[in-house]
Amino acid sequence: MDKTVNQKAWFLVLPVFLIVAFSAILPLMTVVNYSVQDTFGNNQFFWNGLGWFKELLDPSTDLGGRFFASLWRNLAFSAIILAIEVPLGIVVALSMPREGWRVAACLVILALPLLIPWNVVGTIWQIFGRPDIGLLGYALNSIGLDYNYVSDDFDAWATVVVMDVWHWTSLVALLCYAGLKSIPDAYYQAAQIDGASRWAVFTAIQLPKLNRVLLIAVLLRFMDSFMIYTEPFVVTGGGPGNSTTFVSIELVKIALGQFDLGKAAALSLVYNLIIIIVCWVFYTVMTNAGSDRQADKGVA
């Protein structure tokens, strides 16, 4: 794009900069402040240096143990849901009807779970999975499976994973559908003339064109699953035991449950740092992919 250089544009951006700085930088400064202090109540604070960070990053301490346990749990959760949602989303996008009112109807139904408040998503699955009053729990138990997400670790995990698949696969599907729609018909006609198989069309035409949207989908799904809080909190409350306590749930327990400000702040900063690094990697890959694409266009 031929954008003109104009430093006065900063005046247009200033309001956004100020309001986001107010909501993002100011609170983070408080967090940094807490993370190097200890408190014995009564608003009396003592300098603690890097003590909290040392404790946090040492898995043998209580805090470090909890942090790493929740971190691995969370990464495993993100990996599982990505492994399910991305292929499933692609398949659903490929299965969309081609035109007519059916497309609109499918889009609306697909989007529905995305627009439900997260705590209600939790409530829906809390009810749906209960062995006594929920259809899913009742059906599973009546075919002989001993399913109870309140007491069994595996069942709790399965419920949280299926809930996330239910909640967010549509997002991957909608993104892929948007990507597929942007492929010109000429590509398919050329493939037909060449006698390309269905699989060849997918790997040679559709998948490369989906690269960019899939990258966005993976980024969004990874980020949102990495900071998931509300849905598992409503369904399992992080239990049974600690088996579904993800990083955000652990953080809120420490910060608002125990009011351990220093520990919570140190955890917040490390947590945020991980997010920013991952985000930056994706952003760089994404911009590079974007410029490659423009270069392709230039050649063609």
């Binding site: 956004v16 986001v20 909501s23 993002a24 100011l26 609170p27 983070l28 408080t30 967090v31 980020m223 990495f226 900071m227 809080y229 990083v247 955000s248 749930i249 953080l251 809120v252 910060a255 608002l256 400000l261 919570a264 702040a265 917040s268 947590y271 945020n272 997010i275 920013i276 985000c279 930056w280 952003y283």
Partner: peptide, 22 residues
């Protein structure tokens, strides 16, 4: 532009306590 994106990705749990104080 990147900074704005990173805020969209920030976990609300991190901000809960400082927002409460603020």
């Amino acid at each position: 532009f990147f900074w704005l994106l990173s805020n969209r990705m920030a976990p609300p749990a991190v901000y809960a306590l400082p927002f409460f104080n603020l």
